[in-house]
Amino acid sequence: MTVLTEPGVDAAASAPVLPAGPSQNARARRGAPSWAWLGLVPFAAYVILFLVVPTVLSVGSGFFTEDGTFTWGDVAALGDPVVVQTFANSAGLSLLTAVVGAIVGALVCYALLGMNPEGAVRSTVDAAAGVLAQFGGVMLAFAFIATIGIQGVVTVFLQDALGIDIYAGGTWLYELPGLVLPYIYFQIPLMVITFMPALAALKPQWAEANLTLGGTRASFWLRIGIPVLAPSFLASLLLLFANAFSSYATAAALASQGSQIVPLQIRTALTSETVLGRENLAGALALGMIAVVGVVMALSSLIQRRAARWQS
């Protein structure tokens, strides 16, 4: 089709003006300065101060002496039988409390599954789990000492009323076995927080399809529910392991003497008056903890990605 224009008028000027396309709008947006990154500044500062800087300091103190000389001595000390046993104690304690917390927490989530998400019971449990998962340190240690300590309320009642002495075999609460109960105390609510969304994401249509095909409730969980929830359960289990492995304040308040687990051994290396000149060993121990927790969290992230495929 031929377009006629008046004499002396440029054809390009007389052409109709079309609206800008998506590519033009995108180029315009790219050209304009964006200040959205400012929202990440507080989080970035938090990560740098409480994650990056401690990691760099632990690496530096583990590989370098006080005068800046590079050394393998502190890192080689991680192979010492005492240090290896301490890591084994931490891993065993973390694995035990993570497994117990994961199983009990999953059962609590299953009990809540049939309740109204907006109901009083479900809301109360969710709120309590959010609070109790963060209830640790000196407060939790004091609660256990006041309850089942040597002169605790429950201890005295069992001894006076029933003649049961829970410390007949020794004061286990202030030793490594005594850390199991306090750790489980905050592991269960953490499992409820992390695993409940995955359990709630199970689609009712899957259960209906199972019943339509002649399945039972047991076959649904064995063939559909458990295989689908397994990645989320394992990811939560690894998170609980890392949480227990890196816990310090509760153990420090209960076990004031000795260094049965790695965080307490780091404290001993930094504050002991009998073991001098081994302050850099604390950095090597911290480096070992960072390596263990890093591997665990990397596995948890990989498993969680697999679980996110069906949850989305």
Rank of each mutant, 00 (worst) to 15 (best):
residue 179 L to V: 07
residue 175 E to W: 02
residue 183 Y to D: 06
residue 209 A to F: 02
residue 173 L to R: 11
residue 172 W to Q: 07
residue 176 L to W: 12
residue 181 L to H: 07
residue 186 F to A: 09
residue 206 W to F: 05
residue 175 E to A: 14
residue 191 M to L: 08
residue 191 M to C: 15
residue 208 E to H: 09
residue 189 P to V: 06
residue 199 L to Y: 02
residue 194 T to D: 01
residue 193 I to Q: 14
residue 187 Q to V: 11
residue 201 A to P: 05
residue 199 L to K: 01
residue 187 Q to T: 15
residue 176 L to T: 06
residue 200 A to P: 00
residue 179 L to S: 06
residue 211 L to C: 00
residue 211 L to Q: 12
residue 195 F to Y: 11
residue 215 G to Y: 03
residue 197 P to H: 01
residue 183 Y to Q: 09
residue 192 V to Y: 05
residue 176 L to V: 10
residue 175 E to D: 14
residue 174 Y to W: 06
residue 183 Y to F: 15
residue 196 M to K: 14
residue 208 E to T: 07
residue 172 W to H: 10
residue 202 L to Q: 10
residue 197 P to W: 00
residue 177 P to S: 09
residue 182 P to L: 11
residue 195 F to W: 03
residue 175 E to T: 13
residue 174 Y to S: 07
residue 206 W to A: 13
residue 184 I to G: 06
residue 216 T to V: 07
residue 213 L to Q: 08
residue 174 Y to V: 14
residue 182 P to E: 12
residue 209 A to R: 03
residue 188 I to N: 05
residue 207 A to Y: 14
residue 209 A to C: 02
residue 177 P to F: 08
residue 204 P to F: 04
residue 174 Y to L: 15
residue 193 I to G: 01
residue 173 L to E: 09
residue 188 I to S: 06
residue 200 A to W: 00
residue 199 L to H: 02
residue 175 E to C: 01
residue 204 P to H: 05
residue 197 P to C: 01
residue 218 A to Q: 11
residue 178 G to K: 10
residue 173 L to H: 10
residue 210 N to E: 14
residue 192 V to W: 07
residue 203 K to C: 02
residue 189 P to H: 07
residue 218 A to D: 07
residue 200 A to Y: 00
residue 209 A to G: 13
residue 197 P to L: 01
residue 194 T to Y: 03
residue 195 F to T: 02
residue 180 V to L: 14
residue 186 F to G: 08
residue 181 L to P: 04
residue 207 A to T: 06
residue 189 P to A: 05
residue 187 Q to W: 00
residue 190 L to P: 03
residue 218 A to Y: 06
residue 194 T to P: 00
residue 214 G to R: 04
residue 202 L to M: 14
residue 176 L to I: 11
residue 191 M to R: 00
residue 197 P to D: 00
residue 213 L to A: 13
residue 199 L to M: 15
residue 177 P to A: 08
residue 218 A to S: 13
residue 204 P to W: 04
residue 183 Y to M: 13
residue 191 M to G: 03
residue 173 L to Q: 11
residue 206 W to D: 12
residue 180 V to P: 09
residue 217 R to F: 04
residue 199 L to I: 08
residue 217 R to C: 01
residue 183 Y to N: 10
residue 217 R to S: 14
